[in-house]
Amino acid sequence: MRLSLLGAALVAVMATSPLMAGTADPSQPAVSVEQLAETSRRIIDGKTDINGVCYHYLLAKGGSQTVVLLHGWGSTSYMWRYVMPQLVARGYTVLAPDLRGLGDTAKPAGGYDKATIAQDIHGLVAHLGLGPRINLVGHDMGGMVAYAYAAQHPEQLSTLTIMDVPLPGIEPWNEVTQSPRAWHFHFHSVQDLPEALISGRELEYFKWFHNAEAINSRAFDNQTDEIYGRAYAMPGALRAGFEYYRAFPQDIQANQAFARHKLPMPVLGIGGEGGMGAIIGDHLRHVAVNVRAVNIEGAGHWVAEEQPAAVTDALLAFLPAAH
């Protein structure tokens, strides 16, 4: 297996980025730079067909506790470049796929409702032999997928973490999506128009969009912008990404049915102080019985990239101990 993009990026920033030094919580055992370098070399790229779609994933095997990390729109599995190595270094098995249509995963014409993508991830977990129970973490669209997974397979989750995203159809969805900050929900849902306007300008669009949704502007340097710009300039990637938004009517219908039965597993909501940090706990209590929430200071929407140490601390305090 070749060194993954995530692993290569980790090695490249090791010496210069304070974000790699560890968590912010002194009660967490320290992980040395040497350990993180070794961890990066254990993260491998893989591809496999799931439900007729060729999925790309990053995987590092460790202990019996598996953590599955799902990225959102505007990102790929690369968004976990700081959090994933910290979890692996502490003994977790960690899987970070590129979602349907995004990154190096294939880009089919349809299937972008979150319940369908959740079944893809369920199939990937089973194919890789990572069950029978996992800890599922999702940011943005990945959080919507994570909820659909938990609702369809509650017995197969030890924990669920949803990061800085409202769930379609769940209060206060209408209020959140009518706010000025959610302008892109509407623009991205328009058929064909966003592709026509952004195609060929992906780098410029994502440079603006990432920083507009961030408090910590250091999170998106030129290398990061270029990686995401190239990913969304791949043939079919813009259309696939916008299909996530166009599927919201299906997601609303599915989620309102799912919510008739509240999730039984422990649920963690993580939000940025400039994002959903103030409301994410109350939001998730509409769909789960056991919810805790963490508001990440100094972060907007991109919490795992803006404040990775704080996000890692929150996860380590919540997840079952690695074995």
Rank of each mutant, 00 (worst) to 15 (best):
M1C: 03
L10D: 04
V13T: 12
P18R: 15
P18Y: 08
P18E: 11
A21M: 09
G22E: 10
T23A: 10
D25R: 12
D25S: 13
S27K: 09
P29G: 06
S32Y: 02
Q35A: 11
E38Q: 11
S40I: 15
I43D: 09
D49Q: 12
N51H: 15
Y55L: 03
S64V: 13
Q65D: 03
V68A: 08
L69T: 01
L70D: 07
H71E: 06
H71D: 02
V83W: 10
M84F: 00
M84T: 00
P85N: 10
Q86M: 14
Q86C: 09
A89C: 12
V94A: 10
L95P: 06
D98S: 06
R100G: 00
G101N: 04
G103H: 10
T105V: 02
K107W: 08
A109N: 12
G110C: 07
I117K: 07
D120N: 09
D120C: 09
H122A: 08
H122V: 03
L124V: 03
L130C: 11
G131L: 04
N135A: 03
V137Y: 08
H139K: 14
V145Q: 11
Y147E: 04
Y147N: 04
A150H: 05
P154I: 04
E155A: 15
L160A: 15
L167A: 10
P168D: 04
I170E: 11
E171S: 12
Q178Y: 07
S179E: 07
P194T: 00
E195M: 11
A196T: 03
I198D: 01
S199A: 12
Y205R: 01
H210C: 11
F220K: 05
N222D: 14
D225N: 09
G229C: 07
A231D: 04
P235N: 00
G236Q: 00
F242E: 04
A247S: 15
D251T: 09
I252L: 05
Q256G: 02
Q256L: 05
R260C: 09
P264V: 10
V267F: 04
L268R: 13
I270G: 15
G274L: 13
M276Q: 15
M276C: 15
G281M: 06
H283G: 12
L284S: 08
R285C: 14
V289C: 07
V289Q: 09
N290V: 15
V291T: 06
V291L: 05
H301R: 01
V303Q: 05
P308R: 13
P308E: 07
V311G: 08
V311R: 13
L315F: 12
A317Y: 02
A322Q: 11
H323D: 06
